[in-house]
Design a protein around this nucleic acid. Structure first.
Lengths: 212, 212
DNA sequence: GTCTATAGTAAGATAGAC
DNA sequence: GTCTATCTTACTATAGAC
């Protein structure tokens, strides 16, 4: 088995008060998340064992269960972090666009979409992980649910598209296109390619958003 | 444990020659595939155990391994059947359209897409299963690979779309939209709704296929 | 909070008779 | 080809000391 670092070095942790303690636990969590992220990305969720996460992180099984309750928990924690950042950036971009005087709904939508895709590129490792489609049981549903909710909010911006069914299908298509676009962006070789793809997607979004 | 039907009834199988023997094995395979299909659709791939398939099909574990080599094998067999039918119908539709004098590439593409979606509706149970995204390790990649290949062929029909990158991204979007459309069609409540969705998707495909 | 050690369980897969 | 019975492995999850 791999040698583990010794813990409880002199002056480290236990005897300290307040903040230092939290820092210790935070470091544990971070080590677990980092290791899990890498391994999940490498082998996929199903083929990753707790043992591997423990080995690579240097943290014990007990701690893993203490903080995350198991494999699914650690995966979901990673996902929460990722989506929170995406939503934050997208919302921020829309606000910024509005402040700078933009009022065209399509332009606002595109601003959000662009921010979303930017995060996909910046966090491409995580993107690749979550968009691979594998995850704990029922995760696909969760993911789809959140995606729909996201596009549902934004599709308020895009009214005037004929029948209700047309609006429904359009929203569906937009959700899907954004998801797949994110995957493609995350898989890009370099930033130039990523930006080209983002531009092209935005063009397609505009085409889709215009009444037929 | 559940009572199993007795096998080797008088006059059944063993002593017969040729064709009858094959019929027996075919029945075994069919029972396994039917049972597996239902259970996979219910609980998802990961949550389905070999034991359940054995129980519902009334076929033994040994036979299952003999024919399909395991859980992944039976899943892939189901998938092969499903995609083969889809490709067959789509190709057929394009040929039919061509024979009836159609030469517009976009119209031909739409004919294939429509046939594809029709199969999604007719085989909605299987569609739901495979488009749920869950499957054996590495299956998502396989699926994506085949989807791309499929659209790659069809996107030859759709030339004249600006830069190479634009064509690439368009092909990507078409693949994705068709996949998601299939999912939505399979989830439709009744045939009327399915047909409405198919029509709407075809409209969107036309919009996407027209040079910007 | 963190660790080691171990319990418990379930599942996939195989062996070999018929 | 089909069946029953069993094996083996691997992994999640817990218990309890520090």
């Amino acid at each position: 088995m791999a040698a583990m670092r010794t813990t409880n070095q002199p002056g480290d942790g236990r005897a300290e008060t307040g903040g230092r303690q939290w820092a210790r636990a935070d470091a544990t969590r971070k080590a677990l998340l980092d290791a899990a992220q890498e391994i999940f990305a490498d082998r996929g969720y199903a083929d990753t064992g707790i043992a591997e996460i423990v080995e690579r992180s240097g943290i014990s099984v007990g701690s893993l269960y203490h903080h995350y309750g198991g494999k699914a928990g650690i995966y979901l924690a990673l996902w929460e972090d990722y989506t929170a950042e995406q939503e934050r950036q997208a919302a921020l971009a829309v606000v910024r666009a509005r402040k700078s005087g933009e009022i065209d709904p399509i332009a606002l939508f595109i601003a959000g979409a662009r921010a979303f895709l930017d995060v996909c590129w910046q966090q491409r490792e995580a993107s690749r992980l979550f968009q691979s489609g594998e995850g704990p049981s029922g995760f696909a549903l969760m993911r789809r649910g959140r995606a729909r909710q996201w596009i549902g909010q934004n599709s308020k911006l895009l009214r005037g598209h004929g029948s209700e069914r047309a609006a429904q299908v359009l929203a569906l298509v937009l959700t899907t296109v954004m998801g797949e676009a994110g995957r493609e962006v995350a898989a890009a070789e370099d930033e130039t390619e990523a930006l080209e793809i983002i531009d092209e997607i935005c063009r397609i979004l505009i085409r889709l958003s215009q009444p037929a």
